[in-house]
Design a protein around this nucleic acid. Structure first.
Lengths: 234, 234
DNA sequence: TTCGCGATTATGTATAGACATTATCGCAAC
DNA sequence: GTTGCGATAATGTCTATACATAATCGCGAA
């Protein structure tokens, strides 16, 4: 049995992300949650305070607690969960697996991720679509040595990025952001002009030194931008 | 009198920021802080948990609490010091001020930075060159109300970004990264093909709520990428 | 010396209760 | 109807205590 704190938190987050509790929805009062989960108010309070600090909910004395409006400012490197963003923005989200194979990696990939040439990886190509408009094309390698259960996962309901994030907490990550001109194939996939500027985000993650996954996500430059807001202190 | 929670937090943050407690320094145990501030352990615990969640400190059972190594997202965004990069790579670095003026901001800029239309700003356009190859074009606004001494600075030896970083420590920053196709003017400046993909990094910084500067830096997409490596807050 | 294991200790989680703070609601007076 | 104000209800902060968990320390045995 998990800790109660985590269970309550997961519960509430799930309800918000699934859209069951849309932005503006009033969350049960602390004393209600306290009864529902059979715990003290301090425990509920701490969970809600944490969620509020993370910007997922808004709390006001006497008025109660409501699901926060989706902020347009997300941390640069946390956004890749399209399903979540879409649910909160209230648009339709779909993804299509265009290609799936288990293949040995080539020399270039081996170099990038620091593993021997020929190591077997699950290779996936995914297209992310919101309201019938392609939003991103994702090429992903998953290390079956680190995440063997990925081989049996059909990825029909949950996109690979989200699935991995839930399953394997990473300890180190490397990001590369660059701009490229779309070639004919990419232009067709993303339904943009050939040659249009695209933002490419490459992300490699490790767990305790073991390579987990590499994702190369291509966004249409005119449809996407990465936004981040930082405070060095507080 | 402030709340104890805030007071303890401010105290600890101040000691960390001032360098009195450098990274790796062991923070007093909860029971010590509890005595020092005359409060219960729960209060101290909540403060430390919050600071840990923000990545300022690292906590381990039995071992205690230490000031965290600075390893945050800044990596991604700190690469803008060309002079330093050039020195490390052993290449020649130069920059040219192409344009300099004190002008009132237009409506679009006012909207972006949240100041009234017509506020006077120092506007600079700079070209960064390495080994005679243009590496980036920078458009910058500097708020003379916050940094009046910028008006008298010739920026002959030190580029504006570096100068500001040394002079005005920022407390909040906002970043936007996107990809655009170079127009004819930009192509000529950066000596690239018209239409080539460029990476645009926009960065706005504030100091204690007061707007400091906005920089829009355009890199040739094939010559530059932003790289970051980091570990999560745990 | 080195290894293993138990004691110790600092943090992690949770409880029940108390009082503070602040919007909001509803009633009463205008 | 509108205004003012007190009662009410929700979150904010804090205490004192308890037990769980995990990592380190130190001691004794191989």
């Amino acid at each position: 049995m998990k800790h109660l704190h985590q269970r309550i938190r997961d519960d509430i987050e799930a309800r918000i992300m699934s859209g069951e509790w849309p932005p503006g929805h009033r969350i049960p009062f602390e004393h209600e949650l306290m009864t529902e989960y059979g715990c003290s108010r301090m425990t509920v309070n701490k969970v809600l305070s944490t969620l509020a600090a993370n910007g997922l909910i808004t709390r006001r004395r006497r008025a109660g607690t409501v699901v926060a409006e989706p902020s347009n400012q997300q941390a640069v490197l946390q956004i890749q969960d399209f399903a979540l963003e879409a649910a909160r923005a209230g648009v339709d989200y779909q993804f299509k697996i265009l290609h799936r194979a288990i293949e040995p990696i080539d020399a270039a990939a081996a170099q990038r991720i620091g593993l021997p040439v020929g190591t077997k990886m699950l290779c996936l190509s995914t297209l992310h679509v919101m309201d019938d408009v392609p939003q991103a094309f994702e090429q992903r390698l998953i290390n079956l040595a680190t995440v063997p259960e990925a081989g049996d996962e059909p990825f029909t309901d949950v996109p690979p990025g989200t699935w991995l994030l839930r399953r394997v907490p990473w300890t180190d990550a490397e990001h590369i952001v660059r701009a490229v001109n779309a070639d004919a194939t990419m232009a067709k996939r993303l339904r943009i002009q050939s040659g249009a500027a695209c933002l490419v985000l490459e992300r490699r993650t490790w767990q305790a030194g073991a390579f987990v996954t590499e994702a190369r996500i291509t966004y249409p430059g005119d449809r996407h931008q990465l936004v981040g807001r930082f405070s060095p202190v507080a």
